[in-house]
Structure formats: C-alpha cells, structure tokens
Design a protein around this nucleic acid. Structure first.
Lengths: 144, 144
DNA sequence: ATTCATGCAAATTATTTGCAGCTTC
DNA sequence: GAAGCTGCAAATAATTTGCATGAAT
C-alpha cells in the first residue's frame, strides 16, 4: 500500500514497484493525484493530449492496468459501462454521488470493519477488499 | 418496490407496470427468481436458449433494461466489464465475491444504517441508495 | 545491450439500435 | 387493429492485443 504525498517523487514510487519511469506514467500519476474524484481513461487521455506531446489511449489503459495491478490505483466500473480510476491513497475513502447535480463527495467513513469480522466468524469468509458507492442528495439538491 | 414471491403470477406484475406479458419476459423473470446471485445477460441468454424455442441476446438486454427502468431488477456493473442483474427483492442483500473460485455468496447483513445517519447529521447528505460489493476468500479457497 | 514502454491499427467484447415482421391487448 | 415485442444484422463504445519501433536502465 503506497502513500502518495504532495511533492512525492513519482520516479521513486515507480522504481520501487519495478516500473520504468516515463513521461507518460509520471503525467498520469500527477493527473490522478490532482483529481479529487475517480476519472475515466478517456478523460485522462484528453487531459494528457493537451499537455504531453502525443499519447495514445492504449497507453493510458495499459498504464492504468499496470498501476492497478501494483495497487497504485483502484479501478471501479460504474453502471454507465465506463471504469473510473483513482489513486490508492493510504487512507481508505468512499464517495457520495449526488443524483441531483452529479457532484462527488469523498468521505473517510467506512462501515466495513465490524461486518468484516462478523463474516469471518459467521461463515469463514476472509475479506480482502470491498467497493462501496453511496447515492443520494447533497445539501444543495435536497428535495422540498 | 415489488416483492416477488414463489408462485407469483408474473403476468400480474408485468401488467401492473404497464408491460405486455410475453413468453420471454416471463421466462426471464423466472430465471432471475431462481438464480441466487446476480447473473449476466449472456448467462441468461444461454439458459433461455435451452428452454425457450428461440430468443435473441438483444431481447435479453432490452428486457433487462426495461425491467431495470421499472425497478424490477437491479443492474450492477463489475470490474470484469460485465453487468449483472438480479431481482429487486424487497429484502436488501449484498454479495461476497470469492476471488479464488469466483463463487458468489449472498448475505443479508448491511453495514450502512449508522453511516447513513451520520452522513445526514455531519454533512446533510440524504442517502437514497448504495452499492456494496465485498471481495475475499471463501472457506474453501483460503490461502495456506 | 537488454528490457520494458509506446504508437498504431486492427481485434475483441459488451451492449445498443434500426427496421420489418409478429404477438399481445 | 394499434401498440408494443422480438429477431436479425449491423452499429457503437469501451477496452485489449500484436507487432515494430523507441526509450529507460
């Protein structure tokens, strides 16, 4: 589990994971770090095309897959059929999706702790991870 | 929110939702009811081809979409890129995905209750729904 | 120098759509 | 008989892959 802090040297992190440090990889890590919410491969690609000379969508996908396999990023596939990627910060976070304005709010609360223990005891299931997405109305979008 | 019980007449349910009762729709509802865990469109299609004379994959997708729009079924898209569908039973369930044998175990525990209240109080966010998927190793697949 | 990363184009996979014919109400 | 289903084939959309070239160690 890697903790990326501001001003972290990406080359270090990449090296530590046995990956070469390239312009694209550094750029992708930077963008992921700057984004407050999970982002699609295509969104990354579009941002990158503006900044980096050339980059190919395949490269974005390949890079994200590699990062995901090293647990540097977390991939979540939404019901719109597109996967979103976010940095795997050390702190465990979940996201509130406002169904009114589509804003995404990150929270640090996670209710899994007790459930995890209970599953272990009740049915001998060892939890290794989970995905929780919460939908609802934010302060501004409340009905009424 | 519709509760489907054993021996429910699907025609009734379909009519109530303003949908015509057809052989395919009934067959799909039956299969969904018989399946203990969320199932892909293709899995449904394959099962149906064995039983019903002919059915087309498009029809399966269209039917599932229609059902989902009436809240008869719940669609969840997984990281393997395939959507799974399940009946929207009144009881709220979650699923454990074994990363060893890919078995799916349904549980009725849900840890959202307190978090929901706390989000309401802390940041005035009204939760209307959530998705929780849990990954790990089942009894048979435990490492070691 | 060797190993790994990338661009490009083409392939794959899941899902959607247009339209003509066929069931339900 | 009108409105709504369904099959079929073709279109999309997201993601993956093969291969030749280019860059990092």
């Amino acid at each position: 589990m890697i903790l990326l802090e501001e001003n972290t040297n990406y080359t270090e992190i990449l090296k530590r994971e046995g990956m070469k440090s390239t312009r694209h990889r550094n750029a992708i890590l930077l963008l992921l770090e700057q984004s407050e919410h999970p982002i699609t491969a295509e969104e990354l690609y579009i941002s990158l095309k503006g900044k980096t000379a050339t980059i190919n969508l395949s490269t974005v996908y390949r890079t994200l897959d590699t990062f995901a396999s090293k647990n540097l990023v977390i991939k979540s596939t939404m019901d719109d059929g597109k996967a979103r990627y976010e940095l795997n910060h050390h702190e465990h976070k979940h996201h509130l999706f406002c169904v009114g304005c589509h804003k995404v709010i990150s929270i640090e609360d996670c209710p899994m702790g007790e459930l995890q223990e209970s599953l272990k005891k009740k049915i001998d299931f060892d939890v290794t991870g989970h995905k929780l997405e919460i939908y609802g109305y934010c302060h501004n979008c409340k009905k009424g």
